[in-house]
């Protein structure tokens, strides 16, 4: 699905009217005012119109404002994150979120992977210590905002789980199966919830 990008020369500032919601879909750097159905800019930058693909049901172009500087990435429900496991407990594992999508985070965001969110099947039989270890790099999905302390993360998909791990000897490990990783130096096999390679 290819999208044609039409670049505009004008620079807009927050609060400037970009168009009507009947003609435009607000994208990044734009918002829809509910009281008058008008799309306004929310950051300072250049206006960009992204034309929809011909087979798209909604033929309205997406208007985006590309700023000189974007704020740091913030996790939101549904987004895929890369996190480093910091603590593993019998029911939960905590992790520090490092990337949201393709963008690294500026501030520290903490995530929690609960026992029931580790895998899709046999969720009651999950052993957290055989799924993650502190220092593991995991690919996870943000389930919800959680509480004030942490976001709830899930690895309950084939493509989610541990993507990089170090063995007890300190060498990097290679995945053997969905549940095993092997140390490249000692050959020792350790249990992990492994993410599908190449996903």
């Amino acid at each position: 699905m290819t999208m044609e990008v039409e670049r505009e020369e004008e620079v807009v500032t927050p609060g400037e009217e970009l168009g009507r919601s009947s003609n435009l879909i607000p994208g990044k750097g734009a918002y829809l005012a509910p009281h008058n159905r008008t799309v306004y800019a929310s950051i300072t930058g250049r206006r960009t119109l992204i034309q929809p693909s011909p087979d798209s049901p909604d033929q309205r172009p997406i208007v985006e404002v590309t700023g000189h500087k974007a704020h740091g990435a913030v996790p939101e429900p549904g987004s895929i994150v890369i996190a480093r496991v910091t603590k593993v407990m019998p029911k939960v594992a905590s992790a520090d979120i490092m990337c949201v999508g393709t963008k690294s985070v500026r501030e520290k965001f903490t995530g929690i992977i609960r026992q029931q969110d580790v895998r899709e099947t046999e969720i009651d039989k999950v052993d957290m210590h055989l799924s993650f270890r502190p220092g593991d790099i995991v690919k996870a999905q943000v389930l919800s905002l959680g509480d004030a302390r942490a976001y709830y993360l899930s690895t309950a998909k084939n493509e989610l789980g541990v993507v990089s791990a170090e063995s007890i000897s300190g060498a990097s490990m290679v995945p053997l199966s969905w549940t095993e990783m092997q140390c490249s130096v000692t050959g020792q096999i350790e249990q992990r919830k492994v993410a599908k390679v190449g996903a």
């Binding site: 927050p14 918002y31 700023g67 500087k69 974007a70 704020h71």
Partner: peptide, 9 residues
């Protein structure tokens, strides 16, 4: 604005 925080106006 400099931090890229979205504003209404």
């Amino acid at each position: 604005v400099d931090a890229g925080i979205p504003l209404k106006h």
